[in-house]
Computed example of a mutant assay.
Amino acid sequence: MDLRQLEYFIAVAEEANFTRAAERVHISQPGISAQIRQLEHELGAALIDRSGRTATLTAAGEAALGPARMALAAAESVRRSVDEVNGLIRGRLVVGMITACTLTPLFDALAAFHRSHPGVQITLIEDNSDQLVELVRSNQADLALIGAADTAPEGLDSLPIVSEKLVVAVPKGHPLSGRRSVRLDDIGEYSIISLPVGTGIRAVFDRACAAHGLRPNVALQASAPASVADLAARGLGVAVLSESMASAHRDKLHFIPLDGVDAPAVLALVWSATTSGPALRELLERCRRAFGVAPADDGEDTADGSDTAESGALLAAT
C-alpha cells in the first residue's frame, strides 16, 4: 500500500461516493476505484461496501479508517519537519522598513539571523507605512517595521515595539514656547510642518484634526523627521513629532504636549501569520531580542522598555 491509496480510501469513506471522492482528490472515478481495489487486495479484505446507492464502510473499513488518517497525518508531519529545516537552510525573506530611517535594532536582528542562517537571502525594501502594509498583505514582503495610528493594521499579526503621544515642536522664543500644553485649535493659525500622508504620526494627527472638525494648514512635509525638526528650528512653522524625536532636538526646539490627540502613534513589526514560515519565525525571535520585547503573561507581546528611547525616536520616521 502507499499513502495515495490511503488518501483515496479516506476520501471515499468521507464522501460516501466514488464520484465525489474522485473529484475531491483530482482523479478519475475509474482510477480511484482501481486504487482502492488494489488496496483491498493487499489487505486481504473489502473496505468499501458497493452494494447500495452510497459507498459505505465494511467492518474492515471501519477498523482501517482511523489508522489510515493517522498515517497521513504522520506523513504530513514528516513533510513539515523537513520543510522547517529547508526553510532555514535556503530561502528568501523580504523585509520592509520605513524610508530614510536607521533602525539599529532591526539591523542587529538581521545580522544575527544572517550569521546563523547564511543560506537565506534577505532583501530589504523601504517605503512609507501604508505601502509596507499593502506589501505584507499581498505577500510581496514577509515582515515590515511600520508606524501606525493607535493599533496595528487589521488582519495582520503584529509585535508592538513602542507607543508614544504626539507633541508640537517650536524654536525658542516662539509664541507657543512658554505653554505647558497646547490644543489642536491653538496651532490652527500656524503653518504645520509634518511627515507625509501614509506615515503613522501623520495618520494620528490627521484623524485627531478630523475628529475635532479642524483643517490644519500643513504647509511643509518631509519624510525624514530630522528635516521636519530642522525646518521648525528655522521658524518655518510648527512641527508635529513624537516626544522622543522632538527631545533629540531640544538644543534648538521646545516641545509641548498636544492635547486632544488621545490615540498614540505605534511602532510595530507586522506580518501575515497565514504565510509565515520557519525563516520568518526565526527572524521574529531575533527581532524580539533586538528590540527588547518579550511575550507577556497573557500571550501578547509587550516591550520591556529597554529600547524605548531609541525606538520611540523612530516613531517620528513612520
Rank of each mutant, 00 (worst) to 15 (best):
65 L>R: 02
172 K>A: 11
49 D>S: 09
155 G>N: 05
314 L>D: 00
285 E>H: 14
179 R>V: 07
261 V>S: 09
108 D>H: 06
103 L>G: 01
213 G>I: 01
173 G>H: 06
270 V>T: 11
215 R>C: 11
180 R>A: 13
3 L>V: 03
190 Y>H: 11
264 P>D: 04
233 A>W: 03
177 S>V: 08
149 A>P: 08
302 T>P: 00
198 G>N: 06
177 S>K: 09
161 I>D: 04
277 G>A: 06
249 H>T: 00
301 D>W: 15
77 S>C: 04
219 A>P: 02
149 A>W: 00
139 N>A: 07
128 N>E: 07
90 R>C: 11
249 H>V: 01
158 S>I: 00
83 D>G: 02
15 E>Y: 04
64 A>V: 02
62 E>I: 09
290 A>I: 09
148 A>W: 06
285 E>D: 15
308 T>H: 15
210 A>V: 11
155 G>E: 12
69 R>W: 03
284 L>N: 10
232 A>E: 00
304 D>E: 10
186 D>N: 09
193 I>L: 00
110 L>W: 07
238 V>L: 03
94 V>M: 10
194 S>L: 07
106 L>I: 09
197 V>C: 01
137 R>W: 03
311 S>F: 00
190 Y>P: 04
174 H>M: 11
118 P>K: 06
178 G>T: 15
48 I>Q: 09
27 I>H: 14
268 A>V: 02
12 V>I: 14
15 E>W: 01
98 I>M: 15
151 T>L: 05
94 V>P: 03
187 I>D: 04
297 D>V: 10
89 I>W: 08
47 L>C: 10
261 V>D: 13
14 E>W: 04
212 H>K: 15
175 P>D: 12
99 T>Y: 06
245 M>P: 02
83 D>N: 12
303 A>Y: 03
109 A>K: 05
132 L>S: 10
147 G>N: 04
33 S>I: 12
314 L>A: 08
114 H>F: 00
288 R>H: 09
13 A>K: 00
25 V>G: 13
203 A>G: 09
188 G>D: 09
82 V>A: 14
195 L>V: 08
312 G>I: 03
78 V>Q: 11
51 S>C: 01
88 L>Q: 11
231 L>T: 07
297 D>I: 09
305 G>F: 02
239 A>P: 04
152 A>N: 02
26 H>A: 11
74 A>F: 06
115 R>K: 08
62 E>A: 01
166 L>I: 05
263 A>Y: 00
220 L>I: 13
3 L>H: 14
280 L>R: 14
265 A>Y: 08
181 S>H: 12
127 D>L: 11
74 A>W: 06
18 F>T: 13
296 A>G: 15
194 S>W: 02
306 S>I: 13
310 E>L: 15
228 V>S: 00
277 G>W: 11
269 L>G: 09
32 I>P: 08
54 T>C: 01
248 A>P: 01
58 T>S: 10
93 L>V: 13
256 I>A: 10
61 G>E: 03
52 G>R: 10
166 L>H: 05
124 L>I: 14
39 L>Y: 01
11 A>K: 04
316 A>Q: 04
18 F>W: 14
281 R>A: 13
144 A>S: 11
109 A>I: 08
114 H>D: 14
229 A>P: 06
116 S>L: 08
93 L>R: 07
128 N>A: 05
59 A>K: 10
47 L>V: 12
278 P>Y: 05
71 A>I: 10
219 A>D: 12
80 R>N: 14
176 L>N: 02
110 L>M: 15
